[in-house]
Simulated scan of single mutants.
Amino acid sequence: MIRILFVCLGNICRSPMAEAIFRKKAAAHGLSEQIHIESAGTGHWHVGEPPHEGTMNILSENEIDAGGLTARQVVKEDLDSFDIVVALDAENLGFLQTLRKQTQKVEIVRLLDYSEREESDVPDPYFTGNFQEVYEMIDEACASLLEEVEKEWL
C-alpha cells in the first residue's frame, strides 16, 4: 500500500479538499485498497475541527464525500510513515523539507507540479474565498498525481 499525505497551513481548506478529491479519484480507479490518503496542516490552530464551510460546500456541490475529515497537525513521524507528502504551496513545502531527515525516503512534492497551470501554489481560500478556483486547481492536479502514482508506485 502507498501512503499519501496532503499538507496545507491549517488543514481546513486546501489539504482536506485534496484528500477528499484524491480519495474519490482513487476509488473510481478501484485503488481504495492500495492507496491510503490523509491530510494535515503545518499549523495547530484548527486541530480537531472539521473542514471550512467553503470546502464542505464545494465538495458537496461536486458530490465528493467529506465524511471523517478532521484537522490535524503534521508531525515529524509523518515523514517516516508516508511515501509521498504533497504540499499545497511553497511555504508548506519549505516547512516539510526542514522536518525531513536525510535518512527518510519520503518523496516531498508540490501539488501543482502535477498541473499544466502557470501557478506554482494553490492559493488559500481561507483568505481569498476562491473555493471554486481552488477546487478546479486541486481536481486537475490530483488527476495527474493519480496517474503518476499508478505508473510509478503501484
Rank of each mutant, 00 (worst) to 15 (best):
L31K: 12
M1G: 13
E152L: 07
G10I: 02
E133T: 13
M56Y: 01
E150H: 02
I35D: 12
E118H: 07
W45E: 14
I138A: 06
W45V: 07
R110G: 10
W153S: 05
H29G: 00
L9F: 08
A40I: 08
C142S: 13
R100S: 07
D83A: 05
T103M: 01
E77W: 01
L79W: 11
C142M: 05
K76Q: 12
E63N: 15
E140C: 03
I58L: 09
E152C: 07
R117P: 00
E91C: 01
I37V: 15
I108H: 09
R23A: 09
L5G: 07
K151F: 06
E53L: 13
V86P: 10
H36W: 11
V7N: 09
G30D: 04
P51Q: 11
V149D: 02
L111S: 01
Y126I: 03
S15T: 05
E61S: 13
A143D: 15
I2M: 12
D80I: 10
R14K: 08
R3G: 00
M137Q: 13
A28P: 00
E118Y: 07
A66V: 06
E133F: 03
I12L: 06
V85A: 09
P123I: 04
Q132L: 07
H29F: 10
F131R: 06
V74C: 10
N62M: 02
T42K: 03
D113R: 13
I84S: 08
S81M: 12
F82R: 03
G94H: 10
V75E: 15
M1E: 09
I21R: 01
D65C: 14
A90R: 13
R23H: 12
K105R: 15
N92V: 05
L59C: 10
K151Q: 14
V86R: 05
G41F: 00
V122W: 03
E107F: 02
E133P: 00
V7R: 05
L154R: 10
E77I: 05
T70K: 11
L5Y: 04
L69M: 15
D83S: 11
V75I: 15
D78V: 01
E140I: 00
D124K: 02
E119C: 04
F22Q: 09
I4F: 05
I84V: 15
L112R: 03
A141K: 00
N57P: 00
I138P: 06
E119T: 12
R3Q: 12
V134Y: 05
I108A: 07
E61V: 01
Q97D: 14
E19I: 06
E119S: 15
L9I: 09
Q132A: 13
R3F: 01
I2W: 02
P51N: 11
T55S: 11
I12Y: 08
M1S: 15
A18I: 03
L96T: 01
V134H: 04
L111Q: 03
E33L: 02
A40P: 11
L96G: 02
A141W: 00
E119D: 14
Q73C: 08
V85G: 08
D65S: 15
F6L: 10
G67L: 03
D65T: 09
L93E: 11
E53T: 12
D80T: 12
D78F: 01
V47N: 09
E19H: 13
A90Y: 06
C13Q: 06
G94K: 12
D121G: 09
H44K: 11
D139Y: 12
F82Y: 13
K101D: 15
T55I: 03
G43T: 04
L154T: 13
F82G: 08
L99I: 02
V85D: 11
